[in-house]
Design a protein around this nucleic acid. Sequence first.
DNA 1: GTTGAAATTAGCCGTCT
DNA 2: AGACGGCTAATTTCAAC
Lengths: 175, 175
Amino acid sequence: MENTEDVRPKRRGPAPLDAFDRRILAALAADADRSYAALGEIVGLSPPAVHERVKRLKRSGVIRDTVARLDGTAVGKPLMAFVHVEAAGWGKSERLMQIARFPEVEELHSVAGDASVILKVRMENPQALEFLLGQIHSLAGVRGTRSYIALSTYLDRPVQAEVTTEWPNVPLPPE
Amino acid sequence: MENTEDVRPKRRGPAPLDAFDRRILAALAADADRSYAALGEIVGLSPPAVHERVKRLKRSGVIRDTVARLDGTAVGKPLMAFVHVEAAGWGKSERLMQIARFPEVEELHSVAGDASVILKVRMENPQALEFLLGQIHSLAGVRGTRSYIALSTYLDRPVQAEVTTEWPNVPLPPE
DNA sequence: GTTGAAATTAGCCGTCT
DNA sequence: AGACGGCTAATTTCAAC
């Protein structure tokens, strides 16, 4: 055979995740406070094997980081809101990025839709939100904002490793 | 003295967080993969003292859990979107709650504003979003939805223990 | 990937400051 | 309430198979 080594050299892009990887990721996304031994029991591997895979998944960036999730109310931020920012020009100005410096701002996305940027913020009270909105409005090119204050949070979980497979037509099991 | 024991018995509500607690929470929210010895160095306490506090913070619920945060694209969900659901009656129907069963749904909040419910979803492709929107529209009382597809995510971090104190007038440091 | 052993670390006493 | 010492059990980590 000749000339096969440059056609799809080995694999392009990141290594695909096998069933073991998926199970490890699902387990760690649900609770990262687990020993490799416990993980091994869950996914069906030995502790060193799990350790090896976790190390690889971290290196490759599949696992971004592992963090403690705090209770917003307990740390003095009972008020959560999404803020839609409508920018005149093109949403991503360097100045706008600066609002990420506020610890109250947790997420910042540019989006397609009738908003240029969506922020997720969490703060002490409405006054703090008012102040932040003032800061945003003071930026050049900001046409307006719309805020959606959370009344209740029914679900708040990290990225799930699982995907919906029974597809289509899983007509939402009644109750 | 008489009759002082029922007036503010000791303390009501959760114990307030002191400066050490704040530092511990900030460190763990940024990276939960730390030994108590390392944490102690950061916050200025001995390992046992840190251990004691972390245990208390977990018991009291200030630390909800510690999780691995996965890369959406790497797990096959490159498409993130916020979906606003406008419900006819009162947003929180039991049926609507059932969409939390989809692993693609990460957050579900009822909000004040011109949307009854806001969902954060992450999925494989637009077809998957179309399917999910179909499921939502099939629910009784759903008047309509508006979707905001994320083009770029500039910030995505957990609840921060810090709060903005230099307040008001921190005019967003120029670059 | 598995097994088995070594080096760290976690977890838990006391007691002292 | 925290520091310190030591102690045991558990976990991480590295070795060989």
